[in-house]
Structure formats: C-alpha cells, structure tokens
Amino acid sequence: MLSDADAAALYDRLNPWDPARWPSDAFYDGLVAAAGSVLDLGCGTGQMLRQAREHGHTGRLTGIDPDPAALDRARRRTDVEWVAGRAADIPWEAEFELAVMTGHAFQCLVTDREVADSLAAVRRALRPGGRFAFETRHPQARAWKHWTPANASEVTDDTGRVLRTGHRVESVTGDVVTFTETTTEAGTVLRTDRTSLRFLDVPALDAFLAGAGLLVEARYGDWHCGRLTSESREIVTIARRA
C-alpha cells in the first residue's frame, strides 16, 4: 500500500518543480521573483515556494493547502509560512502582492459556491492592486480524453520501487470530469484515489472573477504568453484586485 506520506513523496517525483524544463514553472517563477509577498493556494508539497527561497527570495512566502501529508513535506523548509486550509478559508486581509494557484489546482473548485467563496477570499487577501495568477485547462482541448491507463507514468520512488500511475475517467457531467488515479507495483494495486475537476470556459470563468471583484489584466493561451485561440489548451489568467 501507499500511505498519504508515500503519495506526497510520489507526487514530487512525478511533478518536480523545474523552471528550466517546464515553461509553466518558469512563468510562475518569474511572477514570484518579482513580488515582495506571495500566497500559494493549494501549495501541496511547497516545491515552488521552497525553491523561491533557495534562490534568494527575501520577502514573505506563504503556502496554504488542506493535505496534511503534503504540508508535512513542505514544512521541511522552516523559513516559509505553511498553513493548513482551503482557499475559501484564507484568513488574511490585504497582505499579499501576489496570489497564485499552480498545477491546475483551480480546477479542484468544483461547485459554484466553492469557486465564488475561494475567489472572494483571494481578493480579500490581496493588497489593492494585487494580482492573482492561475491556469485552468481549456475545455475545448478535452484533456481528459488522454487520461487512460495506456498513458500511465512510471517512476522509481525513494525506496527503489518502480511504480506506475494511471488514470481512468469515470464520468463527464456538464463541465465536471471525475476520474480515478491508480498506482501499481508489478501489477499490484497500491492505491486508488478519486478526483473531480471542473473545466470552466472563458465566459463562465470571467463571470466568477467579476463577481469577486477581480479584473482580468492578462489572458494567455500558453505558457509563452501567446494569444488565447481556438487551439489553446490552457486558459492562463492574471487578474487584479480593483
């Protein structure tokens, strides 16, 4: 079996934060480096903020996440503030220049209430003029079509085990996709997790942002700041607190 701690460690193996390799990481890395105070929503194991500190960021860095095992890994770095909670639980008011949600974490906000409450909390946490950067997969690209066992990832964990992690879509209901992630070793199932993600299109997304008092400052269709088009796979947004 894989414990929650094992799963958190495996996540880091499968998704290393590497701005030199991944344009998405480089995009956020530049924003974080330029901001004096940063709030990372859904920070997970804290890779982004830990590296920012390692690379010389001297400002306030704060991560919030509801996953205790992920935060345990994040807390190995003690010069970053780590908080247990969800986006809607944000307790701060007008304290951050920048808030971010990376790794498509925004899509974990499934209901209208979750989206609205989370965006309202983000706005409260930002200073006047502060910015919120995040991305969501564009529904037109139908990314879930590729979430099949045939496209499983293979990685060696910290103990030397060779693990395969694959996905299987259970349902597509409106703009919500529910799927399972299964990790196996030599064909033996070690862990299965079920997740639902919401694929908002641009009009719906912008309506939620406007309702929270966040104004779209920039919108891109890729990690090189390209224009959003009918072929775009991502909706990358930078919104500003009015």
Results as ranks from 00 to 15, higher is better:
residue 8 A to V: 08
residue 16 P to E: 03
residue 25 D to G: 06
residue 28 Y to W: 14
residue 31 L to V: 10
residue 32 V to M: 12
residue 34 A to E: 05
residue 34 A to T: 02
residue 37 S to W: 00
residue 38 V to C: 01
residue 39 L to N: 03
residue 42 G to L: 01
residue 48 M to A: 13
residue 50 R to S: 10
residue 58 T to I: 04
residue 61 L to D: 06
residue 63 G to N: 01
residue 63 G to V: 02
residue 63 G to D: 05
residue 67 D to G: 02
residue 78 T to N: 13
residue 83 V to D: 04
residue 87 A to M: 08
residue 99 A to C: 02
residue 100 V to W: 15
residue 105 A to G: 08
residue 106 F to H: 14
residue 109 L to Q: 03
residue 115 V to Q: 02
residue 118 S to L: 09
residue 119 L to N: 00
residue 128 P to M: 12
residue 129 G to E: 12
residue 129 G to A: 14
residue 130 G to S: 03
residue 131 R to W: 08
residue 133 A to E: 03
residue 134 F to Y: 07
residue 136 T to P: 10
residue 146 H to G: 11
residue 148 T to H: 11
residue 149 P to Y: 05
residue 150 A to I: 12
residue 152 A to C: 11
residue 152 A to D: 05
residue 155 V to L: 04
residue 163 L to G: 06
residue 167 H to D: 04
residue 171 S to P: 00
residue 174 G to V: 03
residue 181 E to H: 00
residue 185 E to I: 05
residue 186 A to F: 14
residue 187 G to L: 14
residue 187 G to E: 01
residue 188 T to G: 00
residue 190 L to V: 02
residue 192 T to L: 09
residue 193 D to G: 10
residue 196 S to M: 00
residue 197 L to G: 04
residue 200 L to R: 07
residue 202 V to F: 01
residue 204 A to Y: 06
residue 206 D to M: 07
residue 207 A to N: 05
residue 210 A to M: 08
residue 213 G to D: 14
residue 213 G to W: 06
residue 220 Y to C: 04
residue 225 C to N: 09
residue 229 T to L: 05
residue 230 S to M: 08
residue 233 R to I: 02
residue 234 E to K: 08
